[in-house]
Design a protein around this nucleic acid. Structure first.
Lengths: 210, 210
DNA sequence: TTTATAAAACCGACCGGACGGTTTGTAAAC
DNA sequence: GTTTACAAACCGTCCGGTCGGTTTTATAAA
């Protein structure tokens, strides 16, 4: 087998094992030996691919982030045509995806912050951009942020094993969150914004009061 | 000094130290030795008050929960008069309170799940009751849940050091979240509910499409 | 093709330190 | 004087990281 792909396979095996451990035993049980055991490789092998445990966490974090970033941009392509706020729509869809996946979703984030809170800078920097984009395209930025926050709340509550919501309820809530027409009723535009080309998609903002 | 209060003081000192450690160094750095060092007491003293580390986490979790539960019921007394949904209002206020406090807010929850995810049963059970109450009093239960989820999203994002929102923005979003009149516009009552006394606040549900 | 050499991937024993928990001792409260 | 609160030394284990060695792949001269 090719050398590069051999490394690639090993790295991914280690990261997959890490996710499995976190999901099954909690972030506190994630050790290098456990990764070696779970992935079937030796500890030396793991240490060859990642010089330190923090490097494992960082790689895990980055892999998850690019994975979801890809999902987002893939979704955004279609979202541009159905929603006036494609960035928000794509974000909501991504968060829903992350919250649906069996276990290995945003767990890497959890493990990262446990071991080294400074690693959180990466996802935070990404979030800054996302929020900027969401606010830029919204006629009511605060409402858009609240929808975004609600999605994150559902996701994180689930991650923590704290969600008292059933699967059906979860699904229904996300569906409503993502349905623009449910929210235009209370948009409170602060300023007039330039609309790209399409004047409106399904329902133009009814613009209550003033 | 009285024996009982001496214990009480020690226990609280240990728990305060634990919170400080988690907030400063992350949940992964919470050790019994660290608690002893931070609180100024000896390790033996800590172990006398809590027979095991899990007992520390559990006590921490319970203390935080009762603290917030008290805040909630205190707020609810006033909330009954200003909102048609006092349970939701009180919950939102409590979550805001938790997210505002300097550091040591719901961090105990974080540490607990790291060390022993099964401890999450306690807060989850509490959440079940809260959600039940919120749904029971709402004419549009799903919307109420989404507002609740948004508050939690803001809180947890902040806890994770992931919140890219400024303090002013944070405050503004919570204010809007808690303002009932901002949300009535899109209530979609599934069934008619008995209203206490006031027939409606500012805007009655306009009831979009059927 | 074969052979020689280097480089990369991998293995598993090992080390020092930290961590959870125990034990023994002491002083204050009852 | 018995129980309770605390102190401090101590113990076995686990964990992150190192290290010497082996196998596999890459390169290139013969």
């Amino acid at each position: 087998m090719d050398n590069a792909t051999r490394s690639e396979r090993s790295r991914n095996a280690a990261l997959d094992a890490a996710l499995a451990i976190i999901a099954r035993d909690g972030p506190g049980r994630l050790t290098l030996d456990a990764i070696a055991r779970e992935s079937g490789m030796s500890k030396g092998g793991v240490m060859h691919q990642f010089r330190t445990k923090q490097a494992v966490l960082k790689a895990l974090l980055e892999r998850q982030m690019t994975h979801f970033a890809e999902f987002t941009s893939r979704y955004m392509a279609t979202a541009r045509e159905v929603s006036e706020q494609p960035e928000l729509a794509a974000q909501l869809a991504t968060v829903r995806e992350a919250s649906i996946q069996p276990n290995s979703a945003a767990l890497g984030v959890l493990a990262a912050m446990v071991e080294d809170p400074s690693l959180m800078e990466l996802p935070r920097a990404a979030d800054v951009e996302i929020i900027k984009a969401i606010k830029a395209e919204a006629s009511d930025p605060d409402l858009a942020l609240l929808r975004w926050a609600a999605a994150r709340g559902l996701l994180l509550s689930g991650l923590f094993g704290m969600s008292p919501l059933g699967k059906d309820e979860h699904q229904r809530l996300f569906k409503r969150l993502m349905d623009d027409s449910q929210w235009n009723a209370l948009e409170k535009p602060v300023r007039q914004r330039a609309v790209k080309a399409a004047p409106a998609a399904k329902a133009a903002s009814p613009r209550k009061r003033a």
